Amino acid sequence: MKIAILSDIHGNIWALEAVLADVKKQGVDLLVNAGDILSGPLEPSATADLLMSLNLPTIKGNHERQLLACEHKRGGPSDQFAFEHTTQAQRDWLQGLPATLELSNEVFMCHGTPSNDLIYFLEEVDQRGRYLAPIANVEAHAGSLKHSLIICGHSHKPRSYAISGGRLVVNPGSVGLQAYDDDQPYFHTVENGSPHARYAICESAGSTWNVGHRCVSYEHEKAAATAHRNGQQDWAKWLATGRA
């Protein structure tokens, strides 16, 4: 089994198209999407149309919840923009996505952790900033899951983390946004150092998995210009540089 994992696309149609073109060259058996799909000042509707046509195994992330909540209360700029630039049919598609997904007896997918889409699986955040989580914390998040491959997203940081029972937790990084800042639970930044789109390929190797984290160049200048035009200068910088 060879699985290509997408996550955190954030409406970046240019990055998504480049990644899909790269995936086609890799001979994968399955392509999956781990959430945070449309929110951002980019092209949420075009991104939704493309993904809906592919009918991939897909879960919702925290930004799907936040986008849908904009129907009742104005949300943050990224969620509100995506809400206002998607159709009811596209939002219905988001509404129908599960929060977690068991792809097989060996593969489980969540966005943050299995129980909370706002918590980083493989990182911790405190007054010092964001850093690699201690193994005890990762083990606690994984809990009683027996799957040999546990897929997560949310942090936009490509990582592979081995835990007990021969299990491997893999975050593919973000297709669409390589840097950001956040003030929850404490102010912190995430940056990958270049604007390349990120995704991962996991291939079963007996009782374990080989993992390839891929960086794909794309027309990031178009994405940055779109964010600038739509009034989010922080996104324009993050998209152009991959730095916060």
Rank of each mutant, 00 (worst) to 15 (best):
I59K: 00
H10V: 01
K25L: 14
E219L: 08
G75V: 02
Q95K: 12
S53H: 08
E71A: 15
S148D: 04
E17C: 05
I135M: 08
H220Q: 05
S115I: 10
T87Y: 09
Q95H: 11
L54W: 03
K60P: 06
C215L: 15
H228I: 05
K146M: 10
E139G: 00
A4T: 03
N33C: 13
A224M: 05
A244K: 00
Q95C: 10
L38F: 06
F121A: 13
G75S: 08
L20R: 11
V211I: 10
A133F: 00
V32F: 00
G112Y: 00
D92V: 11
A89V: 00
I135R: 05
G165T: 09
S194I: 05
L31V: 15
D8T: 01
H213S: 12
S78Y: 02
E64I: 02
W14Q: 10
S7N: 15
I119Y: 07
T241M: 07
S160D: 14
A236I: 01
T86C: 11
L16C: 11
N55H: 13
L20N: 04
A224P: 03
G212S: 15
A244P: 03
N55R: 13
P44T: 09
G75A: 06
K60C: 14
S204N: 07
F121L: 15
K146D: 14
L31C: 14
T113K: 05
V175C: 09
E71I: 00
F121K: 09
S78K: 05
D126G: 12
Q88I: 11
G27E: 06
L68F: 05
E124L: 14
V19A: 07
I151L: 08
Y161Q: 05
A197I: 13
N210Y: 05
T87P: 02
E84G: 01
N33F: 01
C110F: 07
T241L: 08
V175E: 15
A200S: 12
S7I: 02
H85L: 06
F187T: 06
K73D: 07
Q178Y: 13
Y161L: 07
P114L: 12
D29K: 06
K157A: 10
N137F: 11
A142S: 11
T100S: 09
S115D: 10
Y186G: 12
S39G: 07
P114Y: 03
T189L: 08
G231Q: 01
K222F: 01
I13C: 02
